[in-house]
Simulated scan of single mutants.
Amino acid sequence: MGIFLTRNADIHHMVQKNFGKTDNYLVANKHNDCLKGLFKLLLSRLYYIFDGGRMFVLYFDNQGIHEKEISFTDNAPFLLIPWHEVRNFKVKDKRNKVYIDVDHLGKIYSYEIYFNGKLPQGNRERLMQLSEHNFYRGSL
């Protein structure tokens, strides 16, 4: 499943196959903050283009955040970021997109959640549901 060949139905099926439930996931782009993005741009334009265009499926449950990059291979498993290892979790609404920042053991991962387009279809509804359930973070 490559980025250009992936359909929304393929992502839905992959989530259902791995977790059974299909309303706890978001399709996200990797987000680089301005300083990090500028550094990578100066380092290598080609690296910046590929790094900034990486897409992920983020699945949220009581265990944590399960992350999988949408790439040219389906064989890679979802990686778990357990809630007890997350120091800070921020959701910033910017009207037409949302930024999710996760501080996992001192390393910050940032994602952009878009609402328009082929792959992000349904992101807005799933984000609202995840927000209502506090992203399944339990008593954190």
Rank of each mutant, 00 (worst) to 15 (best):
I65D: 14
E85V: 06
R126V: 08
K17Q: 15
N32F: 12
F135H: 09
K36M: 11
F56I: 07
K21N: 10
K97D: 01
S71E: 02
D33T: 11
L41I: 03
N8I: 06
I81H: 09
L58K: 07
F72P: 00
P77I: 05
F19D: 03
N75Y: 10
Y59D: 01
I11M: 05
R137G: 14
N62Q: 06
E69C: 11
Q63H: 02
Q16H: 14
K17F: 06
G122Q: 12
D61P: 02
I3H: 03
I81T: 13
V27S: 01
N75G: 14
L127W: 12
L119K: 02
F78R: 00
F78A: 02
Q16T: 11
L42T: 13
Q63M: 09
K68Q: 08
F89A: 10
K36A: 15
L58D: 06
L79C: 01
Q63W: 05
K68F: 01
M1Q: 04
L80F: 08
V86L: 04
D74L: 12
F4D: 13
E125Y: 01
P120I: 15
N62W: 05
H133I: 06
A28R: 01
R45H: 08
V86Q: 02
A9W: 08
H13I: 09
K40V: 15
M128P: 00
W83M: 12
T22V: 07
R45E: 11
A28K: 10
Q63L: 11
S131F: 01
K92C: 09
Y109I: 08
K40S: 10
Q63V: 03
K21V: 00
F89G: 04
E85H: 11
M55Q: 12
I65H: 09
H133F: 03
Q129D: 15
L140D: 11
E67R: 10
R95H: 06
Y111G: 14
S71Q: 07
V27Y: 00
L58H: 10
C34V: 14
K21Q: 03
V98Y: 01
F60T: 04
Y136W: 13
L41F: 08
V86S: 03
Q16V: 09
I81N: 04
M55F: 00
L105D: 14
Y59G: 00
I81W: 09
N96Q: 12
G53A: 14
I113E: 00
L127C: 08
Y25G: 01
T22K: 06
M128Q: 13
A28L: 11
D10F: 03
Q16M: 07
H66T: 04
H12C: 02
H12T: 07
R126N: 04
T22I: 09
H31W: 14
V15T: 11
K94A: 09
G20P: 01
K68C: 04
F135Y: 14
F19Y: 06
P82V: 08
H104A: 11
K30A: 12
N75L: 13
G138M: 08
E112M: 14
N116T: 06
T73F: 07
F60I: 03
L35E: 08
L26W: 05
F19E: 07
M55N: 04
Y25H: 04
K17Y: 05
G2K: 06
K21H: 03
